[in-house]
Amino acid sequence: MTQTKIDGRAKTREIKRKANLNLLERLYLPEIFKGLSITFRQIFKPKFTFEYPDVKWQPPASFRGRPVLVVDDETGVERCVACGLCARVCPALAIEVVADETELDKERYPKKFEINMLRCIYCGLCEEVCPEEAIVMSKEYELVFTSREEAIFGKDKLLTPASKLKDRLEFLRKMR
């Protein structure tokens, strides 16, 4: 049989099909018994189910949960310098940043930083573009809201200490 791959190159693969089944095989019954025994053994195999609300899945560092703003542990101030790159790159137009001046070294800070979680598609582009490593994807995947207003996360919900995001930060450095 010849199969054409998507890129146009032909690929030949042999499909083995026994034309002449012997009598035992054509009686079906022995084969059915083989099948039944496989099914039976399957009953005792370990199960894959997570009993979700009781047992929660711990995502790996590569997981892209909801984006959060990183707060430096030493200074207790968010790293964001309100450059607006994340808002610019966000394909879903989910981020709104309003900048203001500050006495701190970084000179600028976001007076208002909002992510509309109804718009966010968890693409991670904001994280990638940020020059300060100030916005990263967390491991949080349980997002529940009952109104559109509630779905807009302001700084109060976004600010997260760096110590809690260690996994992701290390992962980002490794992958850079």
Binding site: T39, Q42, I43, F44, K45, P46, K47, F48, T49, E51
Partner: peptide
């Protein structure tokens, strides 16, 4: 339950 076990699930519990 048995259907679930055969499919490596837990079924209603």
């Amino acid at each position: 339950r048995i259907s679930a076990f055969i499919q490596d699930r837990l079924g209603p519990n």
